[in-house]
Design a binder for these strands. Structure first.
Length: 679
DNA sequence: TTCTAGCCTG
DNA sequence: CAGGCTAGAA
């Protein structure tokens, strides 16, 4: 056989069907429809759904009493083509024959003498398939079609299907309701057990579906058993059922979700096509290709379904774990009480958050804004849920508490922080397990507490120690629990995104948080501004807005930032004048003898002021600018220009032109910036 | 009038 | 570092 021969045969056979056999017409039209459908599959998503849809079509056709072959046609065409495709791809010798399989089949039935035995054969198969479909579409509550219910309207039938669908999707809903927290389980085992049961129910359901599916599939296989031996990967029937069962076992129930509506459309399409002139598929090579695509798509579809199921189960389990371990941690911390009352505050907050049904939903911007409104108007620095962390060099001060603990007892701050820190809690649980203390929350880093108002009063050496701890945090290395106390500040949440990146479901909210606008300037912002001074002494307001994206700019904030840089300059120029005069007193006569290096006293003074922690690599350019400034002062003083009240202004003009670009890294929000420069 | 830089002071 | 004040620019 070859293509040129089979094509005319198929045409003639179609003509015969039109006059003699309505069922065969359906067969052909169905087949055409299926081929078209197979094309659509690749763009319309679930192939499994498509296959099942066709089965439903067959069932409906049976109920209508109009057609009697669709199921067979479905299986023979769809599966047979897929099967032969696989075979042809595996065996190049047979490749010329395989594409003809469907065509040859129809051409055989096209002969008048072959009609009768074929019809009998089909009727036998029809009865078989009818049983299969009935069992497949049936559910305990569904009416059994074909048993006195033929008068059922299509709408009723659809209702039946919908009911089936609802039942099939029920396990998922149950899962949601469980994870919703309304009926929160008391123990982990209980929750595990329920989850397991649901999973098993899903598996049973899918197994049933799979069995029906393979039965239908087997019908077509029998029809082509003389030439079909193997099937595409994932559908090897001979000895491959187990593997297929495993694959389909995890198929998500929602594959059936859109069955009825699409089946209805297909059904209408079939009726329309019935009236059309039947054209034989003269593009068998194309079909060949389509079958191959179908095979590939089936494989990917199955693996996708498995992944989806695993993900959903894991997700539910994780959320359950969160709500339980929050409580566990609270109790543990209460007993140990080695992390101070503030930690308990946070843990209680975490508890409340995890208990809230809608806590998993992203908060609106209004939510956060409304919280911040509670902050006094003249509060320019963000209040925070901050715990003073002891320094490593003062282990005896571990139990020190806040200087201003009243910050911790503002209820709205609770909500604010708890809502925002869910990610951290969850991450902590995933990373350290349920029995670790929240005092070691990885996202509550030493660097973060600098954003708290209390940090203003904190000696710089404390900050330095904390800064040194930062890098290990960033690289996810092990961290001593003794660092323990929890400095928490909303400003610092953006870095959570860096740590919880694998928690995709949290990413969206973090992306909101990272855009969260800070109402006031914090010590972190001051620190950042100081480091920016190494690059720019005269930043424009645009630069300030660009490099403080987490600050909600207003007149006050802008003035404050400007004032900061003014103060920075003041200190800078005072130092320059001081060291210039000192040089003159030291007998320096040549301005070229003046240089500023990292070992210079002048640099140390400046670095102490702008980079107290010394954890930032001051750019060389700043040394150059400092040197130029020093020389300018030296020259001016040497020339006795300082007698002029405004003698410095000339120097300012020179220095203001020496600003350089601030690195892009500074555009991060204050906390993120901290993390970047403390690595 | 508003904004900003700079100076002085605490 | 911030507040108050002044001068100058826009």
């Amino acid at each position: 056989m070859n293509l040129s021969i089979s094509d005319p045969n198929m045409h003639s056979s179609s003509a015969n069907y039109l006059e003699e056999d309505k069922g065969e017409i359906l067969h052909s039209s169905f087949r055409k429809n299926l081929y078209d459908g197979s094309l659509n599959m690749y763009s319309n998503g679930s192939i499994i759904s498509q296959l099942l849809r066709k089965t439903i079509q067959s069932k409906r056709a049976l109920e209508e009493g109009v057609f009697f072959l669709p199921a067979t046609a479905v299986s023979s065409c769809t599966m047979g083509d897929s099967a032969q495709e696989d075979r042809s791809s595996s065996s190049s010798k047979d490749s010329t024959l395989e594409p003809l399989s469907p065509g040859s089949h129809t051409s055989t039935t096209a002969s008048p003498e072959g009609d009768r035995p074929l019809n009998e054969h089909h009727q036998a198969k029809r009865a078989r398939v009818e049983n299969i479909i009935r069992g497949m579409a049936g559910s305990p509550n569904a009416k059994t079609p074909g048993e006195g219910d033929r008068s059922e309207t299509g709408g009723d039938i659809r209702e039946t299907y919908r009911e089936n669908k609802r039942k099939q999707r029920l396990p998922q809903h149950q899962n949601h309701s469980l994870s919703g927290g309304a009926s929160r389980p008391n123990s982990k085992d209980e929750e595990c057990h329920k989850l397991k049961e649901q999973l098993q129910a899903m598996q049973r359901h899918l197994r049933q579906l799979q069995e029906k599916f393979f039965q239908v599939y087997n019908v077509s296989e029998l029809e082509h058993e003389d030439r079909v031996e193997t099937y595409p990967a994932g559908f090897v029937l001979h000895g491959g059922e187990d593997r297929n069962a495993d694959l389909l076992e995890n198929l998500d129930c929602e594959l059936l979700a859109d069955l009825d509506s699409d089946a209805e459309k297909k059904f209408d399409a079939i009726k329309v096509r019935q009236k059309e002139t039947l054209q034989t598929e003269n593009s068998l090579p194309t079909l060949h290709k389509e079958s191959k695509n179908l095979s590939e798509a089936l494989k990917s579809e199955l693996s996708r379904a498995v992944n989806k199921s695993v993900d959903s189960v894991l997700k539910k389990f994780t959320s359950t774990l969160l709500s339980q371990t929050s409580q566990i941690n609270f109790e543990q911390t209460s007993v140990q009480d080695n992390t101070g009352p503030e930690n308990k505050t946070i843990i209680v907050a975490a508890q409340e958050y995890s208990h809230t049904d809608d806590s998993m939903k992203p908060r609106s911007a209004d939510y956060y804004e409304s919280v911040e409104v509670q902050i006094p108007e003249d509060q320019t620095e963000a209040l925070s849920l901050v715990v003073r962390k002891p320094t490593l060099s003062h282990p005896t001060s571990v139990n020190q508490v806040l200087k201003r603990p009243f910050h911790l007892h503002q209820p709205l701050q609770f909500n604010y922080n708890t809502a925002l820190h869910e990610n951290q809690i969850l991450e902590h649980l995933l990373k350290y397990g349920p029995h670790s203390s929240f005092g070691t929350l990885p996202c509550m880093t030493p660097a973060m507490d600098r954003s708290s108002p209390d940090s203003v009063d904190m000696p710089w050496d404390v900050i330095k120690v904390r800064s040194k701890v930062g890098p290990s945090h960033m690289t996810h290395q092990s961290r001593s629990p003794n660092l323990g106390q929890i400095p928490v500040d909303s400003l610092c949440l953006p870095h959570v995104k860096m740590e919880c990146g694998d928690l995709h479901n949290m990413a969206d909210r973090n992306s909101y948080i990272i855009r969260h606008i800070q109402e006031g300037l914090t010590p972190n912002h001051l620190k950042k501004a100081k480091l920016m001074f190494f690059y720019t002494r005269y930043p424009s307001s645009n630069v300030l807005k660009t490099f403080f994206p987490d600050v909600k700019f207003n007149r006050c904030i802008t003035s404050q930032l400007i004032k900061w840089f003014s103060n920075f300059r003041e200190f800078y120029y005072i130092q320059m004048e001081k060291f210039a005069r000192q040089a003159i007193l030291d007998g320096v006569t040549n301005v070229k003898d003046l240089s500023v290096t990292r070992d210079s006293e002048l640099f140390r003074a400046l670095n102490m002021h702008y980079n107290k922690a010394n954890d930032f690599q001051v750019p060389d350019r700043f040394l150059e600018v400092a040197e130029i400034t020093l020389q300018e002062f030296f020259n001016a003083i040497s020339l006795s220009k300082d007698s002029d009240p405004s003698w410095k202004k000339a120097i300012y003009k020179v220095i203001c032109k020496l600003d350089s670009e601030v690195p892009e890294e500074f555009k991060s929000s204050a906390c993120l910036f901290q993390k970047i420069f403390h690595r």
